Simulated assay, not measured.
Amino acid sequence: MPSLAKTAAHVTMLQRSPTYLVSRPDVDRIANRLNKFLPAMLAYRITRWKNTNMQRFFYRRSRKKPEDVKKFLIDSVRKQLGEDFDVERHFTPSYNPWDQRVCLVTNGDLFSDMRKGRASVVTDTVANFNETGIETGSGEQLDCDIIITATGLSMVTLGEVEFTLDGAPIDFADTWSYKGLAYSGVPNLSSSFGYVNASWTLRTDLICEYVCRLLNHMESIGAVECTPRLRPEDAGMPERAWVEGFTPGYMQRHMDRMPHQGDRAPWINPQDYAHDRKLFRKSHVDDGVMRFR
């Protein structure tokens, strides 16, 4: 919205339901100060540690005391838009923080545009499209020149590529997730999926490091194939959703087509950076589950 509002006469966001918003600057002042006095790599590592742990604290706080975090986020929006704005209707979700991702508003630009009258938010449903715009479910008419749709998104498995094994199609819904990066019974295949509760690239970086360790190990033993396989003790393992505690529709609509998550390592898809850092960097590649040939 803020980018559109720079040149449009007015931008209206029509949303079916609100999401949590948090405003943060796009410049890290602490990082900039560290870079003035410390070597670049050391400053980078300290900044990365700071940001990672701040996000981790915020997420854990949201899980343990959701009402406190909810109040903090909503009060922050109210400070931006004023007491007269209907924050309860337009910026108070029905779910707890981090049940779905929290939206970052850089430098408060969205709120600034709303205060200046360049942008607005309407919380309603679409009844129909007509000659001049949209009629909402409550009967309000939103006249507009251009409509940009941004709804109905659904996750897909591996880009909907049709994989086969020995001529038979692979149904990933019948597999178990190995460390959240590979699939039981499927050889030489790894995929990268980040965090739903933190920076996406934190986990993708770790997965890339692990895959490099895996490839180096295969080269050292002369293996050309690696396949995660269930152990005898994994028989009858309870099935869990591939990602738990995360409720957006674009995930839930596709969850039945994703691999299962078990109740024990390595058949889990953890969403915890501290846990994953040890798992991907320190754990043995040849763990008795990943089979080499």
Rank of each mutant, 00 (worst) to 15 (best):
E131I: 09
E131W: 08
G133A: 07
G133T: 04
I134T: 02
E135C: 11
T136Y: 06
G137A: 10
G137Y: 08
G139F: 11
G139R: 08
Q141I: 15
L142C: 03
C144R: 01
I146L: 14
T151Y: 11
G152W: 05
L153R: 11
S154W: 11
T157D: 12
L158E: 06
G159E: 03
G159F: 07
E162W: 03
F163K: 01
L165I: 06
G167D: 01
I170T: 06
I170Y: 06
D171I: 01
D171H: 08
F172T: 04
F172P: 03
F172M: 07
F172A: 03
D174T: 14
D174W: 06
D174K: 15
D174P: 06
T175C: 15
T175D: 08
S177H: 01
G180A: 02
A182C: 13
S184F: 00
V186G: 05
P187C: 00
N188G: 02
L189A: 06
L189N: 05
S192Q: 14
Y195Q: 02
V196G: 05
N197G: 10
A198Q: 12
W200C: 04
T201H: 14
L202Q: 14
L202D: 15
R203I: 10
T204A: 10
T204S: 12
T204P: 01
D205Q: 14
D205A: 14
